[in-house]
Design a protein around this nucleic acid. Structure first.
Lengths: 340, 340
DNA sequence: GCAAAAATGATTGACGTACCTCAAGCATTA
DNA sequence: TAATGCTTGAGGTACGTCAATCATTTTTGC
């Protein structure tokens, strides 16, 4: 069972290797009829291009840049760690990774970070961004220069990003809703929502998912206006404590992201019996799960997300197809009983 | 930013390319002191071996064989489909995949399947197996011939398999337990368990996980002896219907795997109000989730598992390291609200 | 200090594809 | 009929590593 090479295809099609090569790499100067003959020969022989040899011959290296959120949220500090860790595996495939951490919730900082590279933009960017017009323009500017752009973790819809890599955040919200629906035994009450900011698409979508479930299936529960914590634990704790003190009817809480530590602090101090779903598997949420303060934690795997982003950027650069199943990022649910 | 090649390492270490190559490929004929110098030079320059070029030069191709369960279970028919689908992506990396489907629960069939390859064993096997002494011996025989062996989906502990690729089945059982614990509102009752066979390690482990949670946290619930359905829907339906008719105290059910269609049929006909957790996301379970017959479905992604198996076998063959995070197969939880 | 053995150097040809050049063939148009 | 432009063939080099050979140097044992 020996491999079929481009040379074999050439013989089968009755053309030269050069022509097969022109077809393979979509170079011009081949008649449609000839292209047809070559592709048919490839089908007949079941020719599969040897990626390894192709990359080697091309001698191509790729530079991809991650622009991520700085700050000490457990998730983002994990994410930065995973990007660092991905350097090694990426290097084996001739991919160099760069990373810039910018302050959260500040689109201008992202634009500045991109500008700081000057003409050395590399081949692609993966950007964790808030949704803003400035970002849409920055993405368009990159695309116009032939740089590939994907949004990462949090999407920027209606921009020219080629793809979004991250979980289905509406689905995550629905999961949270489905869990709260079953966890809350009170016949009536309010559900609080804590988020980072209304400019974070992922947070907005998660809340949407929660509301979808609540409206459709839980007429006895009311979703309260959300608390914006700006990714700050203390601020979240202060605002949430105030809410819980003023509203004794809160029976459920969904912490959409950011400031989870503050959420846990406020819940522990509150008199109500509250069912709680949060994000991020950190030491704090882990302890809270065990203690019973938090009932479930919804997690996205940053390690998978980083690998997926690199694969997608590489596929865009190589113009190869993306394996959709592989790039579907899963939402994991952890409860006290299945903590890893 | 040009790549560091073996040639660069040779210069840095003050040796020839041939020596670097000997060190790289662990060939003998190099003094320890020299090995040291070369590896230090590699560290200094941050040398990363180009896998693509290496495989190309080696001209090596790999043949891996999947031995999987035949039969029409949704999961296994998906799994077989994914193995077929993986052929393309594998071919790009010089990996040929073979697949044999054998009747379920029959270790001898697996042994026969292996024997049918004669001396053409290829480089590795991924085997979905029941636990039995015959299998342990067959695995040992393969290993003795230098063939790599991993168990797949269901493990065979205490065998010489080099690795198990699949989910943590005890954790899956604990998740089921955690969910049932919360879903069941009755103050007291029995929990039924339906499984394929006691020789399937994955089923045994899932039940173990369930019992761990139940014993520790649910003194009010009693786990009943399990029903063995031998992967047959009708048999499961018959046995389970009988149980439900005789025992009005059943308030929860965990279908560990196999015969899910029968489970759903029996539940629908039963008078009790039962909280149900099953496996496999098929048309049947999907409809049952929407109808409310089933409360949650625990899923493993066969597409991920197949890719993981191929990567692991390749890493074993190449003697390269395995990225543990990438190979952790996740357990997904679907409820009515987050059906994809 | 010598011979034998071990270690190292120098060199070369794969491996399969990419990409380039040059020349030749061919059809179309003026 | 010649000029033009498009298509194709032929052949070569490069990519980084592997694997092998043969020559040369260094080390080891006595």
């Amino acid at each position: 069972m020996t491999r079929v090479t481009a040379q074999d295809v050439a013989e089968e099609a009755g053309v030269s290797l050069a022509t097969v090569d022109r077809v393979l790499n979509k170079r011009k100067g081949v008649r449609d009829k000839t292209i047809e003959r070559v592709t048919q020969a490839m089908d007949r022989l079941n020719f599969v291009r040897d990626q390894a040899a192709a990359n080697l011959a091309r001698g191509r290296t790729y530079t991809f840049t991650f622009i991520v959120t700085a700050g000490e949220t457990a998730f983002f500090s994990d994410l930065r760690g995973e990007i660092e860790a991905a350097r090694d595996f990426a290097a084996k495939e001739r991919v160099a990774l760069r990373m810039v951490a910018v302050p959260p919730l500040d689109p201008q900082a992202i634009v500045d970070a991109i500008d700081s590279f000057g003409d050395d933009l590399g081949d692609g960017f993966a950007i964790v961004s808030v949704e803003s017009q400035a970002m849409r323009e920055a993405i368009k500017a990159l695309r116009d220069k032939g740089v590939h752009v994907i949004t990462f973790i949090s999407d920027v819809p209606n921009s020219e990003r080629q793809r979004f890599v991250g979980i289905d955040n509406v689905a995550a919200g629905r999961v949270a809703g489905g869990l709260l629906k079953r966890f809350i035994s009170a016949p009536k009450g309010d559900v609080a929502v804590v988020a980072g900011s209304g400019t974070l698409r992922d947070h907005v979508e998660r809340r949407m998912g929660l509301e979808q479930v609540m409206r459709a299936e839980c007429p006895h529960l009311t979703v309260l206006p959300w608390i914006e914590g700006e990714e700050s634990g203390p601020l979240v704790e202060q605002k949430l404590s105030k809410l819980l003190a003023e509203n004794p009817n809160v029976v459920g809480l969904y912490s959409v992201g950011g400031g989870t530590k503050g959420v846990i602090g406020a819940i522990e101090a509150a008199p109500q019996e509250i069912s709680v779903v949060t994000t991020e598997l950190s030491d704090h949420t882990r302890a809270a799960l065990i203690a019973g303060t938090v009932d479930a934690v919804l997690v996205q795997d940053p390690s998978h997300e980083v690998r997926s982003a690199v694969r997608v950027l590489k596929a865009l650069a190589d113009e190869t197809i993306i394996n959709e199943k592989q790039e579907r990022i899963r939402i994991e649910i952890f409860m006290r009983d299945n903590l890893p």
